[in-house]
């Protein structure tokens, strides 16, 4: 059952479930920022949305991965994508600023994915994203080799650094370390690299779980919260 996460802003567009916290940006904009249309445009709007997301995730107790749900967003321009997505990642890398160190992004509109990819590439950043019904995959400044390692890690759930060359081939260890540095995977203190889909679940058999679409009622939200977000394989059920 999904549970609402208390937030300094009040209300509950942020929902924790399992090891993940989902922040529904469409609801956040309408319920907390009072915007009548969910258009992610202009830098001031982007700043307000990012700060609201940071407020939602600052007190999160559900783990260290946040799913930023953009399916309720109608238009997203590049300036706002930079303010929301790129800066969220930049600031999320600072552990003193945010307890939520990993962000993943999802949306229905593939054009939004294009904007996200552009702003991430410009800043040399990367994130796991699922737009337009595609499965989650690394977007932004990611090489083909790093992308392949990310998918292999998601398939295996976790890989010990010591096994990386054997499992991933020559250069696999360096790529594995690099995707951890890029916040596309989690490197534990014991040298165990955990796929994002397992982060917050202690590397066990749980998955990052997904609350529902922005306009779903609580019943469907509960149903959706039990849906596994297998980042490396399947697209989100019902995504268009």
């Amino acid at each position: 059952m999904a549970e609402s996460t208390p937030s300094p802003l009040g209300g509950s567009p942020a929902v924790a479930s399992g090891g993940a916290l989902t922040v529904d940006v469409g609801r956040l904009m309408s319920e907390r920022l009072g915007l009548s249309q969910s258009d992610l445009i202009t830098r001031p709007t982007g700043r307000a949305v990012r700060e609201a997301i940071e407020a939602c995730t600052a007190d999160a107790s559900g783990g260290s991965v946040a799913l930023v749900e953009l399916s309720g967003v109608r238009v997203m321009d590049f300036s706002c994508a930079d303010e929301v997505v790129a800066r969220l990642l930049l600031r999320g890398q600072d552990s003193s600023r945010s307890a939520m160190r990993y962000f993943i992004f999802r949306g229905r509109e593939h054009l939004h994915g294009h904007a996200v990819a552009e702003v991430l590439s410009r800043r040399g950043l990367a994130a796991a994203c699922a737009f337009g019904g595609r499965p989650f995959h690394p977007v932004g400044e990611v090489s083909d080799g790093q992308r392949a390692v990310w998918h292999a890690l998601e398939e295996r759930r976790s890989i010990a650094l010591g096994d990386a060359t054997t499992l991933l081939g020559p250069g696999g260890r360096a790529r594995l370390v690099r995707i951890c540095e890029m916040r596309l995977a989690h490197l534990g203190s014991g040298g165990q690299v955990t796929a994002l889909s397992r982060v917050g679940r202690g590397g066990g058999d749980g998955a990052v779980r997904s609350p529902s679409s922005p306009d779903a009622d609580s019943a469907s939200r509960s149903r959706a919260s039990r849906e596994s977000l297998d980042l490396g394989r399947s697209p989100r059920r019902g995504a268009s």
């Binding site: 830098r43 109608r74 321009d77 590049f78 300036s79």
Partner: peptide
């Protein structure tokens, strides 16, 4: 979907 791209152009030039 062109209306979304068109809106993004307008948004960026107005900004």
């Amino acid at each position: 979907h062109a209306v979304v791209r068109f809106s993004v152009i307008l948004s960026e030039v107005c900004q």
